[in-house]
Simulated assay, not measured.
Amino acid sequence: MVMELIPSAVSFVDYIRSGKELPMTDVKTLFRKIVLTVEGCLEARVSHKDIKPHNVLLFRNASTGNFDIKLIDFGCGERITGYKGKITGGTPIYCPPEYIKGNEYLHVPATVWSLGTLLFYLVCHDNAFRTNDSIV
């Protein structure tokens, strides 16, 4: 896979760790862009399966000057061939309880869960969960 190089892009984690603040209006706009991006993936029958702050790059769009995002690292991704997904990786603290328990899971609800944990991170600058037990 080849992607464009955006030298100024940093992950949400790196941006927040640098001490910079994202105004809530930017968080709302960026999160909407993330949801639309993930929705596009699902419509293309691709489940990312590792949505987390490390895998969303933040940068200023050269033409508008506004923040923009890129979703990266589809290494755990899966082509959706049925309603249920296979457990093949991902970062546990962003995964839904059924994924942690080792059961089958559903692509869209699992994606919504991961998006929720990402939103929590963007608003609170911390992870929603720290252990598998706290998720379950």
Rank of each mutant, 00 (worst) to 15 (best):
1 M>C: 09
2 V>Y: 09
7 P>V: 02
10 V>A: 05
10 V>H: 10
10 V>N: 11
11 S>Y: 07
11 S>T: 09
11 S>K: 08
11 S>R: 11
13 V>M: 04
15 Y>A: 06
15 Y>S: 12
17 R>N: 15
17 R>E: 09
19 G>V: 02
20 K>Y: 14
21 E>L: 14
22 L>W: 01
24 M>F: 12
26 D>Q: 05
28 K>P: 04
28 K>W: 08
29 T>L: 14
29 T>F: 11
30 L>Q: 02
30 L>S: 01
34 I>L: 14
36 L>G: 11
37 T>A: 13
38 V>N: 01
38 V>G: 01
40 G>N: 12
40 G>W: 08
42 L>H: 14
43 E>C: 04
43 E>A: 09
44 A>N: 13
46 V>M: 09
47 S>D: 15
47 S>R: 04
48 H>M: 04
48 H>V: 12
50 D>N: 07
53 P>N: 04
57 L>C: 13
59 F>M: 05
64 T>P: 02
64 T>H: 03
67 F>C: 10
67 F>V: 03
68 D>E: 10
68 D>I: 06
70 K>C: 05
72 I>T: 11
73 D>A: 06
75 G>F: 08
77 G>P: 10
80 I>V: 13
82 G>M: 04
83 Y>K: 14
84 K>R: 15
85 G>M: 11
85 G>Y: 00
85 G>D: 01
87 I>M: 09
87 I>T: 08
89 G>Q: 07
90 G>Q: 00
91 T>R: 01
92 P>G: 09
94 Y>M: 02
98 E>L: 04
101 K>Q: 13
101 K>W: 07
102 G>S: 07
102 G>L: 14
105 Y>A: 04
105 Y>D: 05
106 L>M: 11
107 H>Q: 03
107 H>W: 15
108 V>W: 01
108 V>S: 08
111 T>Q: 00
112 V>T: 07
112 V>N: 00
114 S>L: 06
116 G>Q: 04
116 G>D: 02
117 T>D: 01
117 T>M: 08
118 L>K: 02
119 L>D: 04
119 L>P: 07
121 Y>F: 15
122 L>P: 07
127 N>C: 15
127 N>G: 05
130 R>F: 11
131 T>L: 03
131 T>W: 03
132 N>C: 11
133 D>N: 14
134 S>V: 08
